[in-house]
Nucleic acid binder design. Structure first.
Lengths: 344, 344
DNA sequence: GCTTGACATGCAACCGATTGCATTACATCC
DNA sequence: GGATGTAATGCAATCGGTTGCATGTCAAGC
């Protein structure tokens, strides 16, 4: 094995190994190893001496070798369905931060909404991670179970019995949004729906229906698929044509598109039409600023990694179904129902 | 070593190893290994037999063990300064995609603009990656050189001699933007500047100055630091007060904030004020839609990984300084200079 | 003074692969 | 028929750590 030419340590010196440190110190390799992993087994003096030498030599334990013998590599995998969707970056950031604090490195995978790609990534990760977080997985349940049997695994926004999962429960926020619209006098509203197979979409749709029924509002559903700025924009026309006075969208991106579509149709928001988003990932950056359901996506990432850690360490993998609640954030895209808009 | 309780294969069966396959096949471990890594060394029949058995047993080569003996683990590290900044997700996505196609896994690190965190991440990654991409690194040059000496390393938007780097050259696009504004009759404009230490900011500022001088425009600089939606919004007041009729912002986020700030001051864009962004990461989602300099950030991620790969394989690490060009995208936030706006 | 035990350290096997070198079996050539 | 070459495979060392068990040392206890 000619280490110098195979890409490992391309230039200059090889990284020092435990053997070199041992030789310089005049102790065995085992002692050096223990100085790092179980210093309480060694005399204080020895630990100090070893660490001093290690420092001077620039020795750092080789993670790969360590992983081979312990089966613990300190890596976790995070797979999301679309890095570019503004919902994910905060989630990724939070997950990352939590993992960092635990001394873990994170592999990031981007499935691009494609189950085949997702499985490919999973296959590559599984061998070198101690745990996995799947956010908005597109895999079918059977697949997920297979991987969950091999490694601690936490799902985000996917509700599979027996597997630890964190669910962003937007129902309360959505209900509050409907209440808000009802109080503003809207009687007839639209739900701009997302992917039919999405857990979040089902949940939101149901919440809208239920609360609207309770308050005697009429709801129609207009699809925006796949959910994006563009499909949101295109939904503006049918929505206006339907005669509703307000709309609540599957997510902020769709809501933002809808705002653009409405502006293009010269519909004034919020004076003659109200729009509510979901997720609160665009902050105050839309115009007008979006009233939306805050979904705490960052927390989801944080909590998921937390659960993963306890599953990895405690091992007590009692099933956990963690719900994150939500609330309505009122900004400038909602207002009183227009006085004389006729219902078609 | 009690493998069953240490988190490696927590439930059910251990993953089969090369030895088991060898035994079942009645061949040596070396042969099994070669069936996967160098099938041309073996007779066709043997390869087939081994693979069949491996399949049946569900054997998958252990990446970690392989990495230990070859020094090749098939991982690369990508560190960005802020996952949540819309500039990065497309870059990450593209980098990811390219790495994927090459069969590599990517570690993602988020430095949160903090050099200390960045170095910590680097320290954790270095032992288990074959190459690194640093996007908008905040590390000082000496540090970067140290890591670059240990592993193939590619920088994005950081210009250090001797280290392969990809630079998004926004100068042409910025120049085009200035030309565009000049043609629209603007004579007095503002540059809303970003971090002084940022390579991108220096480059953009210089491009603005140079082109403006050429066309006889007057430029003032107004800071927005750190660059964000909020600082952009706050910059609106001093900008309006200064009497300029157009502004070009360090990035899209600042521009978007500026739009909001102008709206709040009842300044109509583009009728009485023109705004140009930079990066083109918000697409058409601002209101009004933003005229901006397209920075091809996705390409940067793609190219960086490409260069990294060739550095990893070819080994011929002749220094490369790859420039990505840019162009102006005219949308709705720029218009003719207002007729009678007085210069203070 | 001898046993006992706690503590510090070393020995050597092991994790699961890869790979240089040796070995074996044949076919080819003279 | 013996020398030679080649293709297929095995042996065993190695990568850089970790860890069960053995060993050695020294002080306390009887």
């Amino acid at each position: 094995m000619k280490r110098d030419s195979d890409g490992r340590e391309r230039r200059s010196e090889l990284a020092p190994t435990i053997s070199q440190v041992a030789k310089v110190c005049g102790v065995s390799r085992a002692t050096v190893s223990r100085a790092f992993t179980r210093p309480e087994m060694l005399s204080e003096g020895t630990v100090r001496r070893v660490k001093a030498v290690a420092d001077k030599l620039g020795y750092v334990p080789n993670q790969v070798a360590r992983a081979l013998s312990t089966g613990r590599h300190g890596n976790v995998g995070l797979i999301v369905s679309d890095v570019a969707n503004p919902f994910f970056p905060p989630l990724i950031r939070a997950a990352q931060l939590h993992a960092d604090r635990a001394g873990l490195c994170v592999f990031l995978g981007n499935s691009d909404e494609d189950p085949v790609r997702e499985e490919l990534l999973l296959g590559r990760f599984i061998g070198q991670v101690e745990g996995l977080v799947l956010a908005s997985s597109r895999l079918d349940e059977a697949q997920i179970r297979i991987y969950a049997a091999r490694r601690p695994l936490v799902l985000i926004n996917r509700d599979i019995e027996g597997i630890t999962r964190v669910l962003i429960d937007t129902a309360p926020g959505v209900a509050a949004a409907i209440a808000h619209l009802a109080e503003l006098g809207h009687r007839h509203i639209a739900y701009v729906s997302g992917p039919t197979t999405s857990w979040s979409n089902q949940q939101r749709r149901n919440a809208v229906r239920k609360e609207a029924a309770k308050r005697g509002l009429k709801v129609i559903a207009i699809p925006a698929r796949p959910p994006s700025y563009d499909t949101g924009r295109l939904a503006a026309a049918p929505i206006v044509a339907s005669g509703v006075t307000a709309a609540i969208a599957f997510d902020d991106l769709v809501a933002q598109g809808l705002l653009a579509g409405l502006a293009a149709l010269d519909v004034d928001v919020p004076k003659s039409f109200s729009v509510v988003g979901c997720d609160d990932v665009l902050g105050e950056t839309t115009y007008p600023q979006l009233t939306t359901v805050s979904a705490r996506c960052a927390d989801a990432g944080d909590v998921a990694v937390g659960l993963l850690l306890s599953q990895m360490h405690g091992g007590a993998s009692s099933e956990i179904r963690h719900k994150l609640n939500s609330h309505l954030v009122v900004r400038a895209s909602t207002g009183p129902a227009p006085a004389k808009r006729k219902s078609r």
